[in-house]
Amino acid sequence: MSEKKTIPAPLANEGLPPEERGLFCDAAPREYEPARGAWERFLNWARSESLWLLGFGTGCGAIELRPLMTSRFDMYRYGIQPRPTPRQSSVFVIGGYASVKTLKRIVRSYEQMMGPKFVLALGSCTINGGMYWDSYNTIKRIDQYIPVDVYIAGCMPRPEALLAGFQELKRIIKSGGGEGQNEYARNFDWYKANQKKVIKDWNMPDYNW
């Protein structure tokens, strides 16, 4: 995995008190070039066949993740399994509406995941606000804050729809389209500005390692 030569300027981390800034990393995310040719296709196949979910239910839609593990829907047969820590997981399922308070945790968890990482946005609320379109505390589109690979419409989508979304995600990864991490790094300033616009008390590092 070759890395980009240009290293972006260190982040200011202005949300942290000065005495704590030294405790956190101030490096901005970098873009990573994919490997070439058949080797990258093989790696993408492995990534698509071993999707580890972050076990973080961010909204009411997370209730649809539980049936997936049961014997009726059995997501394990597709190589999908839950993982309790963002460090080890590669798929983040946004479970429906995201309040501002949750968005803060979503951003933190998403940034802690190791790339390549993929986001599956579940439910109408993540697309255009859904039934929370006029809520004072719920963001209306998640793709302003983190890159999204697949949307699953519905309120709520059934577990079958979720499985179909996973198949679509696999297709995208296999075709080399799952580059959300690089997209996030490329447009980091834009994403960060959007996040800071709604998260008023920004008391965490600018990029959470």
Partner: peptide
């Protein structure tokens, strides 16, 4: 599946 998981984990781009 354990093979795929190992390949996937080792092919992560950053750590």
């Amino acid at each position: 599946q354990p093979y795929i998981d190992i390949v996937k984990s080792s092919a992560k781009r950053n750590s």
